[in-house]
Each structure stands twice: as C-alpha cells, then as structure tokens.
C-alpha cells in the first residue's frame, strides 16, 4: 500500500502559513477521532480493513467495543453505519476514497442520503498524491460522486489543523457528510485562529486581477502562486473553499465581482468537482471566465506525489503560468 513513502507531496516547498512540520490530514483524523471517542460515547467507528492507513486504528485500540472492522466489504460497512446511526450513534466510516465512494455509491445514495441518516463518511487517500499505488487507488472522481447526491455535505480540508476543526464540526452536525482526506504530509496553511464552519469559505484575500478558489492541498499551491504573481504586480486573491457542498456562494460571488478571472484548483478531475460547482453557480448568476486547474479527464499513474502533481499541472508554478497566459 505504499506506506513506506513518507516524504511529503508539497513539503519540498516552504509552507505558507506556519513553521509547524507538515502532517497528513489522515494522521490528524486518527488523533481527533480518539479524542472525540473519549468525550462522546455515541461516537462509533467502522473501517474496511484499512484502519492502519485511515488511522481509525487508534480509536479501535482505545474503544474496541465501539469499533467495527467490517472486513473488505465497503457496501456492508456503509449500510451498517446507517443502521448504527438509526439507533442514535454517530458513525464514522472510513476507508480509501476510491472504495468508499465508488464501491458503495448506491448504498450511500439509498441508506445514507435518501434516508438522510447521520453517517460520517471520512475517506482517506483522496487525490493523486496517493502516489505509488497508482491509478486504481487514486480517487479523482469522489467529489463528483458525492456532490451529486441530495442531502450530502462535501468537505475537503486543506491541512491538519483544519481537519481537526472539520472533524469536530462534522461530529456535531446532523446529517450525511463526506470528508476527503489525504495520504501525504501537507504543510499548515490556515491561520492559527481559524475555525472551520460548514459552508463557509476562508478568504485569504480577494484579488482585483484574479481570484483562485482552491480546496485541499491546492490551497497551499494557490497561496504560493499568489505570492509569485504579486511580484509581477498581479493582484491575486485566494479562497479556501473547504466545503464544496453546500458551496459558499456569497464568497464565490464576491470573488467573481472583484476580478474578471477565476481559477479553481483541486486535486480532482476537472469534471464534477469544485471547478464544476463554481462554474455551475457563476454561469447562472455572474458569468465570468473560469479556468479549472485539476486532473484533465484522465487517470493517474504510479509515481511520487510531487512528480504526479507536476505531471498533472497541479503546482504553484502551473497556476502562475496559467494565469499569466490568460491575462
């Protein structure tokens, strides 16, 4: 499963926000879940034989009675989670994003979304930075799959601190949620006093020339790109759209009204993800040019995360070039 690769996808560059060492969002998840388990007896956790990778293993060790390893059976895991939620438990069901959303989509649709059950699907190994395991394990369509479902909330945290805030918010929220986490270590990008709210984007800055609406690891790339562009006199805004659904329409609108060009940036297919959500909204309300940075309708491949990001045009330099080319 490629656990041996420890180097960060983006750690080779200077982190934007903090001096803290990069940390994988899944590592943070494992710790926060453990803390939640201590505080709340209604929290239960399910996994499909990946608890060492998704980091739910920490919770499992501390609370064996409230942890259910479902074996390699994602469909059953989702249904069982729905059943647990219907008795008042707050189930967190975790596996890799590909399997969570793809293998169990019909189950998520019927017993989670249509039944509107209080199930938290927290998937790890989202996106291309899964790395060496290759395309079979790189979820690039998960956001599209989850975003199309009524009642579903879709969240992609940008760093470990935001992940902690997200998991706590999600535990308090009533209803289906999909949270996408990553495998690789990522730098801290959010301000120290930041607190996540479902449906609320964090606006670093609204630019007059261009605004980048980013999610996940692409927030870091966007911040770096904005700094580089500033040197050339291009006023570039950055928004962290960690909740992809419901979209913070107000924030998108203010970005679109301030600058004629919008870039979306995500570690996901350009089809159906954040870029699509922004385009769908703006084309109906305030049409401006939107360029989608993302994986361009192709599968990934094996490789180290940094190389993969380069190959797929997902670096700060790619964002800078795209913006300069289109201004």
């Amino acid at each position: 499963m490629g656990e041996r690769i420890q180097q960060s996808a983006v750690s080779s560059q200077q982190s934007a926000g903090s001096e803290k060492k990069p940390k994988a969002t899944r590592d943070e998840y494992g710790e926060v879940l453990l803390e939640l388990g201590k505080k709340r007896s209604d929290i239960v956790v399910l996994d499909a034989d990946l608890s060492s990778s998704t980091k739910t293993g920490k919770f499992a060790k501390a609370f064996p009675d409230r942890f259910f390893n479902m074996g390699i059976a994602e469909q059953d895991m989702v249904g069982t989670a729905a059943g647990l939620s219907l008795t008042g438990k707050v189930p967190f069901a975790s596996t890799f994003a590909v399997f969570e959303t793809g293998r169990a989509w019909d189950q998520i649709r019927l017993t989670v979304c249509y039944s509107n059950t209080n199930v938290k699907l927290v998937a790890t190994h989202g996106g291309i930075t899964v790395g060496e395991d290759g395309a079979s394990h790189q979820a690039l369509e998960d956001i599209a799959l989850m975003r199309s479902l009524p009642n579903m909330t879709v969240i992609v945290p940008s760093d470990a601190a935001e992940t902690a805030s997200v998991i706590n918010a999600v535990a308090d929220y009533k209803g289906p949620v999909y949270v996408r986490l990553g495998r690789a270590k990522v730098p801290y990008v959010m301000p120290d006093n930041y607190r996540f709210r479902i449906g609320k984007a964090h606006i670093f800055h609204i630019g007059k020339d261009v605004n980048i609406i980013a999610a996940g690891i692409m927030v870091d790339a966007a911040i770096k790109a904005a700094a580089l562009l500033k040197k050339d006199g291009i006023d570039t805004g950055v928004l962290n759209m960690s909740t992809i659904k419901p979209l913070d329409e107000e924030a998108v609108l203010s970005a679109a009204k301030s600058a004629k060009l919008i870039l979306t940036a995500e570690e996901h297919s350009i089809i159906g993800g954040l870029g699509s959500a922004v385009c769908e909204f703006l084309s109906e309300t305030h049409p401006v040019r939107v360029i989608r940075i993302g994986v361009r309708d192709t599968f990934g491949c094996s490789g180290n995360p940094d190389d993969l990001l380069r190959i797929h045009g997902l670096t700060a330099e790619d964002i800078v070039k795209t913006i300069k080319d289109s201004m």
């Binding site: 989702v78 249904g79 219907l86 008795t87 017993t111």
Partner: peptide
C-alpha cells in the same frame, strides 16, 4: 425504519441497528 428499494441493502442496516441497540 429505513428507505429500501435497491435490493441487497437491508440486512446491513439491520446489523447496524442490532449493534447499536
């Protein structure tokens, strides 16, 4: 108790309820 109609899913939900109870 839960929406059904896509076959094959009820037993998993039943298990989850049984575990929760």
């Amino acid at each position: 108790e839960v929406s059904t109609g896509s076959l094959g899913q009820g037993l998993s939900v039943a298990n989850g309820m049984a575990l929760g109870l």
